[in-house]
Design a protein around this nucleic acid. Structure first.
Lengths: 155, 155
DNA sequence: ATTGAGAATGCAACTCGGTTGCATTTGAGT
DNA sequence: ACTCAAATGCAACCGAGTTGCATTCTCAAT
């Protein structure tokens, strides 16, 4: 049968595609169409989207179930390709992990529109470890500034 | 009918009760039994509990619906008596707001047992505002360190 | 090109934290 | 005691994220 369906993500290769594929294969993961689509959609967004927003973006090019998205996000976070951050609304956001692994960055989230944006790497590296109770090990530092973004502030 | 039920929170006044009552009245809120019970339970806990854990604690002395707890927490956060923080698991935790309002504190959360503990006030006051995009206003700073606590680290 | 095994995906149903609407109860002020 | 607004309980709901299982896809070995 001739394949006139849109079951396959037969998008003409976008410029970001080879990069996404490379990142996946470098991490030892299969470079499947959905995973590439997720990475491309994420790279194209100027902020760190919630799962639903990311799903909407991916679906403009690729058919994908929400469960697949959640599993893909788990996988990519596990592989260190993405970072996961908790929003002030209790939903998670994801963004590309910066190249310099050791340069953690914080986020700003608007309490009105909910958009979360990445900040440049933190200069004053939190030496908060000095404040910790004895015997603890820190694996991850989360810094989030909540407030009102420029656009919401005007209206 | 004779009232043999435990509908009323007829706990013999605990030492923390007058304080809780004072805080509520100072904020212009009715000092109802549930609100006092929530504040007492929270003050008695050594960490910042999730709603379910707090509800369990309150129910050891007072009958309370979960909706009432959530509404009470909203109210107390709004009044500045409590602080709300996002856990790494997406659930909120609440703790007493420290006396010095201008001294924000961070939190440590164990990724295994989920317990969130308050840290001393941050010494290196985040001057991250310098990193922010133009036009934004910051209302709240959230700093969370995720890792393994002493107890979980041993086992 | 064919095929077979394991990984990836979709679908449905579910869990869990939190919320909403509405009826009932409580409690402060008369 | 009476009244009326505020507080509470109950049931039903919502959205984010998860689980189980059947189907489809990938890739490697023929």
């Amino acid at each position: 049968m001739t394949d006139t369906t849109q079951h396959r993500a037969s998008i003409p290769h976008s410029p970001a595609e080879p990069d996404a594929r490379a990142r996946l294969e470098h991490a030892g993961l299969e470079a499947t169409p959905r995973r590439i689509a997720v990475l491309e959609a994420l790279a194209a967004l100027p902020h760190a989207p919630a799962a639903q927003e990311l799903l909407d973006a991916v679906r403009r090019t690729t058919r994908m179930d929400k469960v697949t998205l959640y599993r893909t996000l788990d996988l990519l976070v596990e592989a260190g390709i993405l970072q996961r951050h908790s929003g002030a609304d209790g939903a998670f956001r994801h963004c590309m992990a910066p190249a310099g692994e050791n340069a953690p960055h914080g986020h700003f989230q608007c309490t009105r529109c909910g958009v979360m944006t990445c900040l440049p790497p933190l200069p004053t590296a939190l030496d908060a470890t000095a404040l910790l109770p004895a015997g603890v090990t820190v694996e991850h530092v989360e810094v989030r500034l909540d407030g009102v973004c420029g656009r919401c502030g005007k209206s």
